[in-house]
């Protein structure tokens, strides 16, 4: 059982308001200590998948109608968010990552944690150590922080919950490249220190492929392509679609259909 993946999704369908199917037949896995990225355009179903894992689709009148989501051997389909958090999954959302009227330390301590008080204190200290900008503004309101600092606080506040798997929705969105690079470096250090697994949702494929060991490309609610970092970097379609390079550089999503054939050639890692 020890090398069984941490998180496994098999054939997951999510249907909104009983009618609109947002994702179909999603199958993905995250191993312990692995960084996995989900790539895709707006509306491809990335965030829906993240929400299905973290239990938040109920708020949007959506349901997992088929398939299984298993985390450490426990089924997560249609469970309540706080139950899922207790099992060891935390999520930093795309928007509104912090409580603007709470101070930085209040933000760090507001969430219930799986850790003991001592461990919690140690993690808090570690977050402040890795993100000194936060330590300096411990007592100011989070609403006054810059975009990068908010992202740091958003991640830090989830780390003190003691997750084994951290879901990050759009790490780099709206941040300057320099800040993004620093954030990536810190996050990777923290990940190694804590033995975390990460599941990233990114529109910026360059960022995702810099961090990820393995990636899935979503198109129209389905997985169009998957592979490890080397495969992704070498793939001409990924180059064209998401990295802006390659011949012509057209962002034509129909090409992803063709790209899907690649899946057959590479198989699953």
């Amino acid at each position: 059982m020890t090398d069984a993946p941490l998180l496994v999704l098999q054939g997951v369908d999510v249907v909104y308001k009983h009618v609109v199917r947002a994702v179909r037949g999603i199958a993905l896995e995250v191993k312990r200590g692995q960084v996995v990225a989900i790539l895709g355009a707006n509306g491809a179903g990335k965030t829906t998948t993240l929400r299905a894992i973290s239990g938040f689709i109920g708020l949007d009148h959506a349901r997992v109608t088929a398939g299984t989501i298993v985390f450490k051997g426990e089924h997560l389909e249609n469970r309540l968010p706080h139950q899922i958090t207790r099992l060891g999954i935390s999520i930093t959302p795309e928007r509104d990552k912090v409580f603007p009227n709470l101070t930085v330390s209040e933000n760090m301590s507001v969430a219930p944690s799986r850790l003991t008080n001592a461990e919690r204190k140690r993690t808090t200290d570690m977050v402040f150590q890795f993100f000194p900008a936060l330590a300096a503004r411990r007592n100011s309101e989070a609403g006054l922080l810059s975009g990068g600092e908010r992202q740091m606080l958003g991640i830090g506040a989830k780390l003190v919950c003691g997750p084994e798997l951290l879901l990050v929705d759009e790490l780099s969105l709206g941040l300057a490249p320099l800040i993004t690079q620093e954030l990536i470096a810190r996050l990777m250090q923290i990940k190694d220190e804590l033995g975390l697994s990460l599941l990233l949702v990114e529109q910026n494929a360059a960022v995702a492929l810099q961090m990820a060991d393995y990636a899935y490309v979503f198109e129209n609610g389905e997985i169009a392509l998957e592979g490890d970092r080397a495969m992704m970097r070498g793939n001409r379609h990924i180059q064209e679609l998401y990295l802006g390079g390659g011949a012509g550089g057209r962002r034509n999503y129909r090409d992803a259909r063709a790209a899907r054939e690649v899946r057959g050639q590479h198989g699953r890692a």
Binding site: S54, F56, L59, L80, P81, H82, T85, R86, S90, I91, T92, P93, D96, K97, V98, F99, P100, N101, L102, E106, S109, V110, A111, P112, A157, K158, C161
Partner: peptide, 23 residues
């Protein structure tokens, strides 16, 4: 109070509060 801070958090942004694992 820890619960008081959570109350303020829920008032500000219930979605994020729930995402933080607060019931």
């Amino acid at each position: 109070g820890r619960w008081g801070v959570r109350m303020r958090a829920c008032g500000q942004n219930p979605l994020l509060a729930a995402q933080s694992g607060i019931n």
